[in-house]
Amino acid sequence: MSAATFRIWRGERGDGRFEDYPTTVSEGMVVLDAVHRIQSEQANDLACRWNCKAGKCGSCSAEINGKPRLMCMTRLNELDLAKPVTIEPMRAFPHVRDLVTDVSWNFRVKQKIQPFTPCAPQAADGTWRMQQRDVDRVQEFRKCIECFLCQDVCHVLRDHNRHDSFVGPRFLVHVAALEMHPLDTADRMAELREADGIGYCNITKCCTTVCPEGIAITDNAIIPLKERVVDRFYDPLKALVRLMRRETRDERRETS
């Protein structure tokens, strides 16, 4: 047992301040344990979200010493306990109370994305066939626990408040999982460019850095999607090729 101080953001609807809570800590504790101890012993009404306590549900997202992290997966022994540990709510979403923010925007965004649209079953018994190597990438994206830490750290949302025109890394990963699903037949290229605002992402990779599931968000999801969009709408080389093809065709027609 040793002592540590937790400097926790308290308040409602953006109106708040840090308050210091000294408490005892023991081996193996994570930040969420400390928050629970403070909640049970000193501040019964301290608001925070949590569920699984095992990094699987993505509920306890917060900013710990300024970094977006899951409270349940942040061990105290990796923090400097000589100084107060600051715990704040995610700053890219409207504040509700203490460590709780209003993340409902994320749920509304997902609803607008074209859902999974499978091809007809390939086998006589009405089931599909997929090879493991063809689903590995999609399974990486489907590991996402919707903690929204990537949304929190994304400067397009956090600093520029583009919630109306950019869906954020979480939903680009979601679109990538759908687009790269071997059975999916929908075409989301136009919505990626327009409604999803993929062009806003300038691949600073902050989202990848904070992902607790270790999903290579930028490299494996966003960049390939950007390439597909560019291929479809902007590629000058392809435009040239298209143009040349037309010209060769015309020449052939002339010579024939």
């Binding site: 409602e12 909640q39 019964n44 009404d45 301290l46 608001a47 509700v96 109370r97 203490d98």
Partner: peptide
């Protein structure tokens, strides 16, 4: 007994 108000109050 619970302290605080009715807004997001886990004690309540």
């Amino acid at each position: 007994g619970v302290a605080g108000n009715r807004e997001y109050n886990p004690g309540w």
